[in-house]
Nucleic acid binder design. Structure first.
Length: 271
DNA sequence: ATTCTTGTTGCATC
DNA sequence: AGATGCAACAAGAA
């Protein structure tokens, strides 16, 4: 499920072991998440190092250890981070496990294996971390930046554009739908048709949904309130929490998309 | 049995 | 050249 706020939630889970030392490393060499990793080297250099800090950005996390060591994790479609006691019954698809000095294990589970584990050792910041786009909640995410990006992808449906991580880091399928629903834009609206007022509104709504999601899900994984589209989007016969009309569902930009035909009409973007 | 999936990439096509 | 769309990746749920 992991989009912006869920990623932050999982980061916090592992962060309980901050300050502890790595006592053992397990990396499944056959897991697709671990492809390309120097597994033997990671095991060797990580052992005995202290977990110093963690950070989430977009759909990625970075865990930083002494000796300039970085572990990056992308949760893909089905990944999650867990913390468990060492004597637990291991579950299937545990692709990375760090045994920590407090007796806890930090576990990365990912059945579908669309996720990714990354590694870096050295001064400075790894390329895979540095290249993540500036956060939607940062000052760099200006209205102008959004306007330029929509123009550049003018022929694509706005739904597909909102999913582009190079400009909307952390936005995934449900967040994109939530934004468009709240702002009142049809997911099929062409990005190039958005007028100045509509762009302003889209920009503001993007920031608001990110803030709200982090407040609700990012902190302790509470379910969002039922007046969000989130709670109704996957059920057949789901109704728009604002207008009570039957929600529509269809693929847009290659992804299942849910919208309220009452609230989101083509043309509203042209202002 | 079949179809679906909260993500990303690589490649074909426009 | 740059933008767009789609299949592929893999496993489990409905």
């Amino acid at each position: 499920m992991p989009e912006l706020a869920e990623v932050e939630f999982f980061r916090r889970r592992w962060d309980v072991a901050r300050g502890k030392t790595v006592k053992a490393v397990y990396l499944n060499p056959r897991a697709r998440d671990n492809r390309g990793l120097p597994i033997a080297k990671i095991k060797k250099v990580l052992l005995g190092q202290k977990f110093l800090a963690s950070q989430a950005a977009a759909k990625q996390m970075a865990f930083y250890f002494t000796n300039h060591l970085w572990l990056g994790i992308h949760l893909g479609m089905t990944g999650e981070l867990a913390v468990g006691p060492a004597e637990r019954e291991p579950k299937p698809h545990e692709h990375l496990v760090l045994k920590m000095s407090n007796g806890q294990e930090l576990i990365f589970i990912d059945p579908r294996q669309f996720g990714r584990v990354l590694f870096y050792q050295g001064q400075g910041v790894p390329e895979w971390w540095a290249k993540i786009a500036p956060p939607i909640l940062s000052r760099a995410f200006t209205v102008q930046v959004v306007a330029d990006f929509l123009k550049r992808h003018g022929r694509a449906p706005i739904k597909a554009v909102l999913l582009m991580q190079e400009r909307f880091p952390g936005i995934g399928n449900w967040m994109a739908d939530e934004v468009l629903w709240r702002a009142g834009f049809h997911p099929q609206a062409r990005a190039g048709n958005f007028g100045p007022q509509a762009i302003l509104r889209l920009h503001r709504t993007l920031r608001q949904v990110c803030r709200d999601a982090l407040k609700v899900i990012g902190k302790d994984w509470s379910d969002p309130p039922s007046h969000w589209l989130f709670n109704h989007r996957w059920s057949d016969g789901g109704k728009c929490p604002a207008s009570r009309v039957l929600l529509k569902r269809a693929p847009v930009g290659g992804r299942t998309t849910c919208w309220s035909p009452a609230k989101q009409k083509l043309g509203a973007e042209r202002r």
